[in-house]
Nucleic acid binder design. Structure first.
Length: 138
DNA sequence: GCCAACGTTGGC
DNA sequence: GCCAACGTTGGC
């Protein structure tokens, strides 16, 4: 059982778009970064992930999704993969990036959350159980 | 819209 | 295999 964080630009695909899908399921495609793809390949059915809105007015975590199908090619012979995810919960309010930055446990200089690191651009990152528990309690 | 940070490309 | 140039990301 592993935890992840998946970024999406809400202008492209938001948590509300997911909520409106049949069974609240979607294929998470469009990842064009090898490191992110390799993380995707490590996902297992039942893994949980934060849904993160990036490049928008208020960036932050907006809900929780579950991996329901492990990675498979976007098309026949494609080098890029996708996974299928299902909405578990949309948070009543966004956990903003600003809020995340204000939590000391997530900003330990020796072991801070990847999403909070300077220059981070990865669209898929692992989340530790400690980070997960801390954030879900907010 | 700016720009720092980073990944990718491609000539050599 | 190096590295400059370029493109993209994403917070601000």
């Amino acid at each position: 059982m592993n935890y992840w964080l998946l970024k999406s630009e809400p202008s492209t695909f938001s948590i509300d778009d997911l909520a409106n899908k049949p069974n609240q399921i979607t294929s998470w495609d469009g990842v064009r970064n090898y490191q992110a793809r390799n993380f995707m390949r490590k996902m297992g059915v039942g893994d949980l992930a934060f849904f993160y809105h990036s490049s928008c007015k208020i960036p932050g975590i907006v809900g929780i999704i579950k991996i329901i199908k492990t990675s498979y090619p976007e098309e026949l012979h494609s080098i890029w993969d996708m996974v299928d995810v299902q909405l578990i919960q949309k948070f009543p309010e966004i956990i903003t990036l600003e809020k995340l930055r204000s939590i000391p446990e997530l900003n330990n200089p020796l072991n801070n959350m990847i999403i909070l690191r300077k220059g981070n651009r990865l669209s898929i990152t692992p989340v530790t159980k400690t980070e997960w528990d801390k954030i879900t309690k907010l």
